[in-house]
Design a protein around this nucleic acid. Sequence first.
DNA 1: CTTGACTCCGTACCAAGGTACAGGGCTTAT
DNA 2: ATAAGCCCTGTACCTTGGTACGGAGTCAAG
Lengths: 153, 153
Amino acid sequence: MRQNLEEKYRDILTFKVGEVARKAGVNKETLRYYEKRKLITKPDRRRSGYRIFTQHHIDQVKFIKRAQELGFTLSEIKELLELRTDENTTCSEVRTEAEEKYKDVVEKIEDLQRIKKTLVELIDSCSGSGPKGDCPILEALEGENKTGRNLRN
Amino acid sequence: MRQNLEEKYRDILTFKVGEVARKAGVNKETLRYYEKRKLITKPDRRRSGYRIFTQHHIDQVKFIKRAQELGFTLSEIKELLELRTDENTTCSEVRTEAEEKYKDVVEKIEDLQRIKKTLVELIDSCSGSGPKGDCPILEALEGENKTGRNLRN
DNA sequence: CTTGACTCCGTACCAAGGTACAGGGCTTAT
DNA sequence: ATAAGCCCTGTACCTTGGTACGGAGTCAAG
């Protein structure tokens, strides 16, 4: 089954790594990297060693990019791709992954909200004029905390 | 001025790296790392090479940790520390740093809110039952997007 | 004065997600 | 058949914030 690649690819469009990179909006090295991490289907090779990519690969890379935009790590994306490939995957398995990511995101938002709140308080406490001598922001960071403000919540 | 360290430290408490680590809640190697990155004042050394730390260093590390909790990177913290040391620093310079960090945080929150919204839509679109054949989550990631949903906002 | 706990230094390694070579080998158009 | 412009590989490097290791020197208590 290795001898007639010509046969196999006769009727479909194939691409070289640079073309895929351009079409998918990633770097050539990134494609090699994804291949090594098994995030994309291992492409066949020409006798010269050149990789033979198809539209399938381009779609995979786009899948990866969309999942990344939703905050999935490459490891998580690999799991998703495995779910996608596995015939026995159920809808609820996929949903579970999404729900876990959702929890992550909510938690991160909460952390950032607390940080934002503290920053606002610090900024508001500082008139923005005068020397740093009594800058309440530095004071708070120094922990001397004359104002009774406390950074840890 | 190097000869009489004994003189210099006669009346103040000094600490070895392990003590500082314990008191400040960091690792010994982290202290070396901070020293290398010039985040803490370079400690004097005994003739043996042992570092001589004081309460000042402990306070610096605590400053660093508080600033980290607010999302400042070590590079940004270095700037803050320089502002703190510089006699000519004005309050408004410090406030500007805080305002920039505030903007970063707000932006990150916004990104995550968008991500969260998309995840919720995906999760809601999926009944959680049945095989993955028509899992709307995978469909959306695949970009086929029969539902007209679009991940990019 | 010995022994265990401490410290020193340089270096390598970790996660994550890539990027950047160098030194070769193909391919394709002219 | 030659030259530009692809592609191949392995390896090193990047950022951020550290952690781990190993061999050697030091300190303090008994």
